[in-house]
């Protein structure tokens, strides 16, 4: 009766292969993969919300919070990679915990619009904050690893390996969560909130927890991006198009597995790199057409290509 669940094994093997590959791949590829995985963390959070029927069109809010938390900590002299990621995550958690009291009252497009409005408030503040470099943002000095300063290729690799570790931990944790009672409550809330309340469960509290988890993952993703890129600015971290990109990858990947967001994110980043190189004016055209095809033909995302369709929670 209990099916054999291979997700965690797949995740561990995939992360291990990727981590080892990092030693052989060229620097630009490792850089690109790090960024893709960092954004994959954000998408992993959106997966939790999307399973519940909630679409956050403003998740860049937490991505940006994570990034700016790292940036600000850097100005104060904090450079340790683990401390920085933890800081970005915690900052996002606190923000999401506070906003959660408001946003958990909303569903469907109201949820999407309010999350978008929140993210645009942050954008509006950052753009006008000269201390933080306004639209130009500011540079972030590279992180240190347990006090060790790395440079060049080893820095890129260091960032990458830390990211891989985090991806594994996050994937493992989220998978456990999705298999739990509260994880399964997603489908209940999506289908019928009245019944969930009459089962004695607070819909708002369940959503609040999911929102905070999603924000934590986005904060971690933002923190990594900021460190890897070495620069933060409002347009690439907080604008609504950034959130739109996360939503896009969520739909692209599908919600079938915790591995899907990372796969989707890597595919996205690869296609973008090449599309920019060869057909700079049709990049969004490709994105849009893909999104349409997905919605019309493959509503469960890329991941559904790997699994045989079956009814399950």
């Amino acid at each position: 009766m209990i099916e054999k669940d291979k997700t965690l094994r797949t995740l561990a093997i995939a992360v291990a292969i990727f981590a080892v590959a990092g030693f052989f791949l060229p620097q630009w590829a490792v850089f690109m993969l790090t960024l893709a995985l960092a954004k994959g963390l954000v998408v992993l959070g959106l997966l939790i919300l999307w399973r519940t029927g909630l679409l956050s069109f403003g998740h860049a809010l937490f991505y940006c919070t994570g990034g700016y938390a790292v940036g600000l900590a850097g100005l104060w002299g904090l450079t340790d990679v683990v401390a920085l990621i933890a800081l970005g995550t915690v900052a996002s958690i606190l923000l999401a915990f506070a906003l959660g009291f408001l946003i958990t009252r909303y569903r469907e497009i109201y949820f999407a619009m309010l999350s978008m409005a929140f993210s645009m408030i942050l954008y509006g503040v950052l753009v006008k904050s000269e201390v933080l470099g306004s639209t130009d943002g500011f540079n972030i000095s590279p992180p240190t690893f347990l006090g060790v300063k790395l440079e060049g290729e080893s820095l890129t690799l260091g960032n990458y390996l830390v990211t891989c570790l985090l991806v594994w931990a996050a994937g493992w944790g989220v998978h456990r969560y999705l298999q739990s009672t509260m994880g399964h409550m997603s489908i209940g809330i999506r289908d019928n909130e009245i019944r969930v309340e009459y089962l004695g469960v607070s819909v708002r509290r369940v959503i609040h927890v999911k929102y905070v988890i999603a924000a934590a993952l986005a904060g971690a993703g933002g923190a990594i991006s900021a460190m890897v890129v070495g620069h933060i600015d409002p347009d690439s971290m907080a604008y609504w198009t950034v959130s739109g990109e996360f939503v896009f990858v969520t739909i692209l990947a599908g919600t079938g597995s915790v591995v899907a967001p990372f796969l989707g994110s890597i595919v996205f980043e690869l296609v973008r790199t090449y599309a920019f190189q060869y057909t700079p004016y049709t990049w969004q055209l490709i994105l849009g057409s893909t999104l349409l095809l997905l919605i019309l033909i493959l509503p469960d995302g890329l991941w559904s290509l790997f699994t045989r369709r079956k009814a399950r929670v």
Partner: peptide
């Protein structure tokens, strides 16, 4: 018209896709 009756949020995504496409059509 092919997506009428589907979830409002899905239709938002469809128009978002149309937006992305049209952005590049303008450039073309």
């Amino acid at each position: 018209r092919f997506v009428y009756g589907r979830d409002e949020v899905i239709i938002v995504l469809v128009t978002y896709a149309a937006f992305l496409i049209l952005e590049d059509v303008i450039k073309l």
